Simulated scan of single mutants.
Amino acid sequence: MFNDADTAAGQLPGDAQPAHFDGKRFHNARPRQQPGLAGFSRIMWDFFFNKPADTVPDRALPVQPITTQALADAAAHSVFRLGHSSLLLKLSGRYWLVDPVFAERASPFRWLGPKRFQPAPIALSALPPLEGVILTHDHYDHLDRHALLQLNDRVNHIITPLGVGDLLVKWGIAAAKITQLAWWQAQDIAGIRFVCTPTQHFSGRGLFDGNKHLWCSWTLLMPGLKLFLGGDSGYFDGFKTIGRRFGPFDAVFLENGAYDPRWADIHMQPADTLQASVDLNARWLFPIHNATFDLAFHRWDDPLQQIVRLAAARNVALCLPMLGQGIDLLQPQTQPDWWSAPDLTARGSGDPAG
């Protein structure tokens, strides 16, 4: 089913402790830059009192409602973008959710924190039967507790990096449906080989759980298709290692948004995103982590404008579908710049699945 390069990830022997875990907390291969108290205080001041006005769109963004007919008509290997880093994958006719966030705010509070620009293109209750959920890390803009609990009885598998699955068990999700992997471990599930691959990031949902749960990217290998789900990461040489080991990839979904020079080692700048796609030897780049939440200080559409310019300069094939639009992963196409056309409206037909 897979060639030698594909099967190279293997498993850690027995209960061996991964090198990126010190017995209490996980860590990056390269230490994360710490802003210090003064730097952190300045970031918080800017976030609450010095935000530019254009970090939020001044109009409703175009959304393609995901209808039951659209799901049925989609190619056997397709992707629908739900917003931010949330994706609905249709692989061999089975559905997988990636980092599903349906909450109104990317926050531990329902009344405070970054608010989504508009609802997701499909309601949580209207999702099709799910083969699985794929999680990259525990941050609130990637892991929505309410959504996971609502999906608990409708999903067969939940695939997480180490420690995140333990968190889900504490929430009441059955351990039997959870698969937890360390970096470079692999597991075959429903005809797909899932390889837990590194990123340069961090974790934590509160004041005292920093880096107690692993963060990762995912390499998905199946006959005739290779995908890379990047999660969150600063640019690092791990992309070249993953590209050499498992590439070329048909499509890579990489973070492109919520960036700032002050935290460039854990969130890529657009030029880093483009370079990472080159390192991964990607056929198509799908930029994500944008157009949903106000999490930084750049214009809300700056990630889109920049990545289009950078990709054109280096002849990188780019796919930027509007939210809810279905894309054939084996035959993606360049999409129009929907974010810069104020009169562009969704072209959904029929009733939304939600």
Rank of each mutant, 00 (worst) to 15 (best):
T68F: 09
T68L: 08
Q69D: 15
Q69K: 05
A70R: 13
A70P: 06
A70Q: 12
A70C: 09
A70I: 05
L71F: 10
L71C: 12
L71G: 11
A72W: 04
A72V: 07
D73K: 12
D73L: 01
A74F: 05
A74G: 02
A74M: 05
A75W: 03
A75K: 08
A75R: 08
A76F: 06
A76D: 13
A76R: 15
H77Q: 15
H77M: 10
H77F: 13
H77I: 09
H77K: 10
S78G: 02
S78Y: 08
S78K: 04
S78H: 06
V79G: 07
V79N: 10
V79S: 11
F80K: 00
F80Y: 00
F80R: 00
F80N: 00
R81N: 09
R81V: 15
R81K: 04
L82M: 07
H84W: 12
H84L: 07
S85I: 15
S85N: 11
S85G: 06
S86E: 03
S86L: 07
S86D: 05
L87A: 01
L87K: 03
L87S: 01
L87D: 01
L87G: 01
L88S: 00
L88G: 01
L88K: 03
L88A: 01
L88T: 02
K90N: 01
K90M: 00
L91S: 01
S92L: 13
S92H: 13
S92G: 14
S92D: 15
G93I: 02
G93V: 03
R94I: 02
R94Y: 07
R94S: 11
R94W: 04
R94E: 13
Y95K: 01
Y95G: 03
Y95S: 01
W96P: 04
L97R: 02
L97S: 02
L97H: 03
L97E: 01
V98T: 05
V98R: 07
V98S: 02
D99P: 00
D99V: 11
D99W: 08
P100H: 14
P100V: 14
V101W: 04
V101I: 11
F102N: 10
A103Q: 13
R105V: 01
R105D: 10
R105Y: 05
R105K: 05
A106W: 09
A106S: 15
A106K: 13
A106V: 08
S107N: 08
S107H: 05
S107K: 06
S107R: 08
P108I: 12
P108Y: 07
F109R: 14
F109K: 08
R110S: 12
R110K: 13
R110A: 12
W111P: 10
W111G: 04
W111L: 09
W111Y: 10
L112T: 04
L112A: 12
L112S: 12
G113H: 10
G113Y: 10
G113C: 06
G113K: 11
P114F: 03
P114V: 02
K115Q: 15
K115M: 10
K115W: 10
R116V: 14
R116Q: 15
F117L: 06
F117Y: 14
F117V: 04
Q118L: 08
Q118G: 07
Q118F: 05
P119E: 11
A120Y: 05
A120C: 10
A120K: 14
P121G: 08
P121V: 08
P121K: 13
P121C: 10
